[in-house]
Computed example of a mutant assay.
Amino acid sequence: MRTLDDTDRQILRLLLDDARRPYSDIADRVGLSAPAVSDRVDRLREIGVIRRFTLDVDRSLLREGTPMLVELDVRPAAVQDVAVALTAVDSVDHVFRTADARVVFRAPIREGDVTAFLDTVVDLDDVRGIDASLVVSDEWTPGLGEAELALSCVECGNTVTSEGESARFDGELYHFCCDSCLSNFDERFDRIQSDV
């Protein structure tokens, strides 16, 4: 599977709406059998389009702090570290990195003290500026639109089209844009394996 068809998109939309929806219900809606839906979902998981099935918790019904949307101006060399540190915090629900060295996140923060919160999570010397706003409501509605599959070749980084190749190495699935990239990767993998 190196492309998404309308049936794949329809399955993804149904799962986005309710990830616990039975495959038999999805099958009825998309005109496939339940095992065929299961196969498609398995392939979508295998290539990484579906990373996990998750739960959407209404945090407004929980008391854990003041909901804040925080934008950090971060030293460019520290953007990755700051984003990873924030992602590891259980109460942080969303972390975004921008191209201009900013990290934006949403989290409930006790007593609204963003600086005290950040001091427990990141090195404040990496943060050049903080802009925090109180969140009065939020709605997370992931959508799909008319998305196309955009796999990258692990060998050269080019986009893998329908003419591309996929192969397993040591149990893991890799995608390649062409036979040449697959061969190069295979040779290098064999050399590494033989050196080990």
Rank of each mutant, 00 (worst) to 15 (best):
P22Q: 13
V30L: 07
R43C: 00
P35E: 02
R29C: 00
D39N: 12
R29T: 12
V30M: 11
D17L: 10
V37Q: 03
D17M: 07
L16N: 12
R20Q: 11
A34M: 00
A36V: 05
D17K: 14
S24N: 10
L16W: 05
V41F: 03
Y23F: 13
S33A: 15
L44H: 05
D18G: 04
D25Y: 05
L14I: 09
L15P: 15
R40A: 04
A27K: 09
V41A: 08
V30Y: 11
S33E: 09
L14Q: 14
I26N: 05
I26M: 03
S38C: 01
P35A: 08
S38I: 00
V41R: 05
A27L: 06
R21G: 03
A19C: 08
S38W: 01
L44S: 08
D39M: 15
A19P: 08
D39T: 11
L14F: 12
L16P: 11
L32G: 10
D17V: 02
R40P: 10
A34C: 02
A27H: 06
Y23A: 10
D28G: 15
I26L: 03
Y23R: 13
P22K: 10
P22H: 11
R20D: 14
D42Y: 02
R21T: 12
L15I: 10
R40L: 05
V37F: 00
L32Q: 05
L32T: 10
R21M: 12
A36S: 15
Y23E: 10
L44Y: 07
V37N: 05
A19Q: 09
R20S: 13
A27I: 09
S38P: 01
D18I: 01
D17H: 13
S33M: 04
D28T: 13
V41M: 04
